[in-house]
Amino acid sequence: MVNGEWRKMERKWAEHLEDGKVVEVEILIEYDEKCTTPKRFIAKSKVDGIQQKPKKFKN
C-alpha cells in the first residue's frame, strides 16, 4: 500500500475534525479468492454528510 497517500488521507480527515466538521469513515477490504492477504483497501468517507470520492489503495 502506498503509505504516503494513506497518511495524507488521514491528515485530511484530521483537518476536517479540527474545523469542527463531522467525519464518517468506512474501510472496505477486498481479498483474492484463494488468499488471506488483502489485495485492496477502499476508504469511503463523508464530511458533514457529504459523500467524498472513495480512495482506493492496492496492497
Score class of each variant (00 low, 15 high):
Asn3Met: 08
Glu10Leu: 14
Lys46Gln: 14
Lys46Glu: 12
Asn3Arg: 08
Glu10Asp: 11
Pro54Ser: 05
Arg40His: 01
Val23Arg: 03
Val47Lys: 10
Ile50Phe: 04
Lys21Gly: 06
Met9Gln: 12
Lys12Arg: 13
Gln51Ser: 15
Glu5Gly: 04
Lys34Leu: 07
Leu17Arg: 15
Asp19Trp: 09
Arg11Trp: 06
Phe57Gln: 00
Glu15Cys: 07
Ile42Trp: 04
Glu15Leu: 06
Lys53Ile: 10
Lys56Leu: 11
Gln52Ser: 11
Arg7Ala: 02
Gln51Asp: 15
Met1Gly: 15
Glu15Tyr: 08
Glu18Gln: 12
Lys56His: 11
Leu17His: 00
Val47Tyr: 10
Gly4Gln: 01
Lys46Arg: 15
Gly49Arg: 06
Glu26Met: 07
Lys39Thr: 05
Arg11Thr: 01
Ile27Tyr: 07
Tyr31Cys: 00
Glu18His: 10
Ala43Trp: 14
Lys46Val: 06
Phe41Lys: 01
Gly4Thr: 07
Lys12Leu: 05
Lys12Met: 09
Gly20Val: 12
Trp6Ser: 06
Lys55Met: 12
Val25Asp: 07
Gly20His: 02
Gly49Phe: 14
Lys46Phe: 07
Pro38Met: 01
Val23Gln: 06
Val47Trp: 10
His16Phe: 10
Leu17Asp: 03
Val22Gln: 11
Pro54Tyr: 11
Gln52His: 09
Lys46Tyr: 04
Ile42Gly: 00
Lys55Gly: 11
Ile50Leu: 10
Lys21Thr: 01
Glu24Phe: 01
Thr36Met: 01
Lys12Cys: 03
Ala43Met: 09
Lys53Glu: 15
Phe57Gly: 06
Thr36Gly: 00
Ser45Glu: 05
Ile42Val: 15
Ile27Ser: 00
Lys58Leu: 14
Ile42Pro: 03
Asp32Ala: 13
Ala14Cys: 05
Arg7Trp: 02
Lys8Thr: 13
Ile27Leu: 13
Ile29Leu: 09
Glu26His: 03
Ile29His: 04
Lys46Cys: 10
Tyr31Asp: 06
Glu15Arg: 15
Asn59Trp: 14
Asp32Cys: 00
Lys56Glu: 14
Glu18Asp: 13
Lys44Gly: 00
Val22Thr: 12
Met1Ile: 03
Glu10Pro: 07
Asp19Glu: 14
Lys8Asn: 14
Tyr31Pro: 00
Lys34Ile: 02
Met1Thr: 09
Ile27Gly: 05
Val2Met: 07
Val23Asn: 01
Lys58Asp: 13
Asp19Ser: 12
Val23Pro: 01
Thr36Glu: 05
Asp48Phe: 04
Asp48Gly: 12
Lys56Pro: 07
Val2Asn: 11
Lys44Cys: 12
Lys12Gly: 04
Glu33Thr: 07
Gly49Lys: 03
Glu26Asn: 08
Asp19Asn: 13
Lys21Leu: 00
Met9Glu: 13
Glu30His: 08
Ala43Thr: 09
Leu17Asn: 02
Ile50Asn: 13
Lys34Thr: 04
Glu26Gly: 06
Met9Phe: 06
Glu18Leu: 09
Gln51Pro: 04
Gln52Trp: 05
Asn3His: 10
Pro38Asn: 08
Glu33Phe: 04
Glu33Ser: 04
Lys39Gln: 10
Asp19Gln: 13
Val25Cys: 09
Val2Ala: 08
Arg7Cys: 03
Phe41Glu: 04
Val23Ala: 04
Lys56Ile: 14
Lys56Tyr: 15
Gln51Thr: 15
Thr37Lys: 09
Gln52Gly: 05
Arg40Gly: 02
Glu5Ile: 09
Lys55Pro: 01
Ala14Asn: 13
Glu24Ala: 09
Asn59Asp: 01
Lys53Trp: 05
Glu33Ile: 03
